[in-house]
Amino acid sequence: MKINEFVPSGKIFDSMSVDTKKNNIGSESENFADMLKNNLDKVNEKQLSSEELSQKFLRGEDVDIHEVMIASEEARISLQMAVQIRNKLVEAYQELNRMQL
C-alpha cells in the first residue's frame, strides 16, 4: 500500500548542494560543535565584559550607568538564550532516543 506517491526529482537535491556550496565560507565548512563552541564563547565574553563594567562602576571609575545596565541585560539575555538552546538540544536528543527503529 502506497501512502504517498510523491517522488522528488534529482533537480531538488542538485539545487540544495549548490546552495550549501554558496554558504560555505572559505575552503573549510564549520561543523556544529565548532559553531556551538564559538557561540558559547561569545556568551562568556558578554558575561565577562558585563562583570568588568560593573566592577568599574562600583570602583567609581568613569562608566555610565546606562552602559552597565545594557551590558548586564545583554549578558543575561544571551545566557537565557543559550540555556533555552541547550534545553531544546537535550529535548531533541531524548526524542531521538525514544524513537523505535
Rank of each mutant, 00 (worst) to 15 (best):
K2H: 07
I3M: 11
N4L: 01
P8G: 01
S9Y: 02
G10M: 10
K11V: 12
K11L: 13
I12V: 15
S15C: 03
S17F: 06
V18H: 05
T20S: 14
K21E: 13
K22R: 14
K22G: 12
G26V: 00
G26I: 01
S27L: 09
E30C: 08
N31D: 14
D34F: 14
D34S: 15
M35C: 05
M35E: 12
N38V: 02
L40Q: 06
D41F: 13
D41N: 10
K42P: 00
E45W: 12
K46N: 07
L48P: 02
S50M: 05
S50Q: 04
S54L: 11
Q55Y: 08
K56S: 04
K56V: 01
L58G: 00
L58A: 13
R59C: 01
R59T: 01
E61N: 07
E61Q: 08
D62H: 06
D62C: 02
V63W: 00
V63M: 03
D64I: 03
H66K: 10
H66G: 15
E67V: 03
M69Q: 08
I70K: 12
I70T: 14
A71N: 03
S72E: 10
I77S: 07
L79V: 08
Q80D: 14
M81C: 07
V83L: 13
Q84V: 08
I85P: 00
R86F: 15
N87Y: 09
K88R: 14
E91Q: 03
E91W: 02
Y93S: 15
Q94V: 11
N97T: 07
N97Y: 04
R98E: 04
M99Y: 05
Q100I: 05
